[in-house]
Nucleic acid binder design. Structure first.
Lengths: 211, 211, 211, 211
DNA sequence: GCCTAATCGAGACGGTACGTCGAGTCTTAGT
DNA sequence: ACTAAGACTCGACGTACCGTCTCGATTAGGC
């Protein structure tokens, strides 16, 4: 998966063309956005990137693999661009509900960003059917974000805003999963109001009821 | 989509061979289970069903379409077989938590049934990337089940076990979506304990806190 | 081949639809003229004739068979129309060369008639590759005409204008075959001057005539 | 048509696989000989040659085109093998009749050679119906042989054995066309006696020779 | 002049081959 | 050594027709 360190066969060299790699990322993301994942082909990517097919096969094992790396690359760029304030932690103002709502509103914005939509849907879909892609997608892209929620929930437990016996890994699914499903499976509209509501329903479940 | 009433192109006739339709459903489901969705081909289905390719193309517009109908058919059979007790309603013993937990345990069993696993994952995945399939999958397969939850939550509202201002459509996502995501995206294990926990977390959010 | 008396399977009936037969002939000839023999299909003929495919398969065994009969029918019509003067004999004015030249000029005209060109080329071609069609084409269409030449040459032998030891069957090939080949295989242009020359060469040879 | 210099579409390259080309020629000729032209398919040729279909479509435009080149290749081989004595000229012993008879007997042998029969009939037939094939067949295969006759007849004119006003192009048809037609259209048997007779009739005519 | 069985139109069926696309591998020049 | 280019084998695509097989709906002939 990782370009630099391993790659599938074993060409293994520092003489790799950086220019080609960038061109392939750009072509892959552009094609997925324009014609969709299934109609994006390795040949198409190669042609658009002005690159030989072998150059792709040398460094990646599949279409999904190319796209995964391209998207990872895009995400890194984006989070560098977006400034570091939401990169490594969820804010802790002491008000868990407010903090979660704020972060989820940012997530809603990002889900609606057209640059991200096509490739991430594509990868999520591929991940459903191709377990390897699924795991990489999960561990590289989703897991880091989820860990931030775990930390924030733990902090809230320490602060007495969440019951001690609550499992943070399950708790966060109460707001993450509904949002993810609506987005992935078109099961409903996505809005600030919706995510706010999710937080409210979830929190009153996990907060101590004795007031 | 619907075989009987219209079909995509317009050949449309009462002279359709029921035997072929059944053979195609069986072949399609078997192949998806055996080799997975991407390696399931129309040619393969036709060959296995002992049917000409044209007979498939005459009545369905794509591999996804065939599989969708095949799975729909399978589901109908299954719910007829499984007896009608959980077919049209969620039991109402007066204890919402117990009722939800019982139904979710059944769902867990069904998700692990190998007959269902391969085709439904495949369809869900296709639905992520192909909006039309997604909507059909949603409206024909998911929606009916979700409506049962809506009804049960409404009943609980009448009984005073759920707050009046809660939106049942959102409430049900608190337990349905986490389960769906773990299953679809391998984001965690699925067990009775897990679904029981989901119900507990969710309920204490939507039940009136004032005691 | 012959519709009335045998037909391939054995449907055998006087209840055959004359209207359909005519429509099939017309459609077949029209299609061959319009799109050529290879792109003429049984389905196309049936559709154009407003006839079920089975009606064709019931009475004929192949595309070539349909066309053969259609063309036979057309030829009969044509010779009825053209008056009977050249139908049953080659004129015998006592001047063999003049008589042959006259008949060949008529043949040239007929070969250039667009109604005949497409189907007869098609049948001749099919006959080259399909021996059965070749024999029927030969015996039903060509042979009768060739016999007229045999008769005329025999008369010339009696009249002392052709040597007694000449085989009329071979003699006639001296003018018939060159014309046929030019027409069928595009090996040269066809004109009155050409056929006149053929007759002269055939009658008197190409060697200097000791006079 | 010509393989080396251009090819129909425009892939065009020196990187063409010679091995594949040979395998395709061999497979095509073998199949035509075994199952006949109409039952010879591009898929069949590709399979037998151990070659992808695309490799055929890349370099040739049709079944007829493949066969034409294959046969051209075979002919070149054959004339190289057969020694050069009849390759570039018809012998000139001073006796035109004897020389023509000798060459025609060789032609009769060749027409009965099973290696040649199937493909050349097939091509001739295709040429009747497909003008382009017909012209190539004519110019590449027939024309060179016919020119030899033209030269020999001209020499005979110089030697005073053929009249000065005779057109050699037409003269040669007197023996070539009858033979060709009998062979192509099954209109009669082919033998040395037959071709000898044709030469006699052609040279001296069928009319009584005033002596 | 009605009855009934063969023929008719229509077109779905199991097949074969078509010509195209793309996958992944391999070869050739060029840098 | 890696690259761009692209030919190669292979497998699937979706389409066109083949020849066979039902389906009602005429339709012509023997009663």
């Amino acid at each position: 998966m990782a370009a630099q360190k391993s790659a599938h066969p074993a060409p293994n060299s520092t003489r790799r063309s950086e220019k080609s790699r960038r061109a392939i990322y750009d072509a892959a993301l552009a094609l997925v956005a324009e014609v969709g994942y299934p109609r994006t082909t390795i040949e198409g990517i190669a042609a658009r990137a002005g690159v030989g097919k072998q150059t792709i096969y040398r460094w990646w094992s599949s279409k999904a693999d190319v796209l995964l790396e391209a998207f990872l690359d895009l995400s890194e760029q984006a989070s560098r661009d977006a400034g570091p304030e939401y990169e490594f932690a969820i804010p802790d103002t002491g008000d868990l509900a407010a903090d979660l709502k704020a972060v989820l509103r940012l997530t809603v914005d990002q889900l609606k960003d057209p640059r991200f939509e096509a490739p991430s849907r594509a990868l999520a879909a591929e991940g459903v059917v191709n377990e390897e892609v699924g795991r990489v997608f999960m561990t590289k892209l989703l897991e880091p974000s989820l860990l931030l929620y775990v930390d924030r929930v733990r902090a809230a437990q320490v602060a007495g805003q969440v019951r001690q016996d609550v499992d943070p890994r399950i708790a966060l699914e109460l707001w993450v999963s509904p949002l993810a499903q609506r987005w992935l499976q078109y099961t409903g509209p996505i809005s600030y109001a919706y995510t706010d509501t999710l937080v409210d329903y979830a929190l009153y479940g996990i907060a101590p009821r004795a007031r």
